[in-house]
Amino acid sequence: MSLRIVVTVKYVPDATGDRHFADDLTVDRDDVDGLLSELDEYAVEQALQISENSDDDVEITVLTVGPEDAKDALRKALSMGADKAVHVEDDDIHGTDAIGTSLVLAKAIEKAGYDLVISGMASTDGTMGVVPALLAERLGVPQVTLLSEVSVEDGTVKGRRDGDAASENLEASLPAVVSVTDQSGEARYPSFKGIMAAKKKPVESWDLSDLDIEAEEVGLEGAYTTVDNAAERPARTAGTIVKDEGEGGKQLAEFLAGQKFI
């Protein structure tokens, strides 16, 4: 038996950098250093663990939709241990929203061939956390999402989803779409050997025509949502800062009382 895993990874602006919008109100991806979204490292890690724990022949493909630089994200995932990569890149994709992104990803996943898709819980720039559910809807396969624990055996995926009201055990047959949280286990660092090996691993590039997608279906033009305005949040007015010299607790209580919290 063989198991084909596609891991979706996003290249995002560094959260600790100065993230901002470009003139067309899309996320500026040129001016800000990017990297493989940390939350997608967990998805790569779980794919590797599933592979390591499996008697089957497992092949892990990492897939990204993004600009030229997004190759960096693929390289990182390959150096962690994924087998091959697919980069969907097309100028017409600029400005695509979640609905459009899920279309491109779904077509690419189908073209690549899959038994299991693993995504991160959310991208660290858009933070919508909806793409995995959208992929399941588009592919017509079960969604087994937001897992803090995941395992695959005999064509079945099982996992634990820690929700607000309860912790649930989930189960579905493959093919399926999974997303994993940052509670699923720390991602490994690429080893020197892994980094060297990654340089020789295949990276395919596809554009929209390879996926039979028309330019109008994606990009700013195809978007289902419009951002009319983006404004930097005014800096908070500097607060009062006191040094505790024995009275700090009392002073704080005085402030809270003044604000009617006590």
Partner: peptide, 16 residues
């Protein structure tokens, strides 16, 4: 912050 206390939380929090 609107209000900050520079201090050891083990002193400030119980006092608060």
């Amino acid at each position: 912050v609107d209000y900050g206390v520079v201090g050891d939380l083990f002193d400030v929090v119980p006092a608060l």
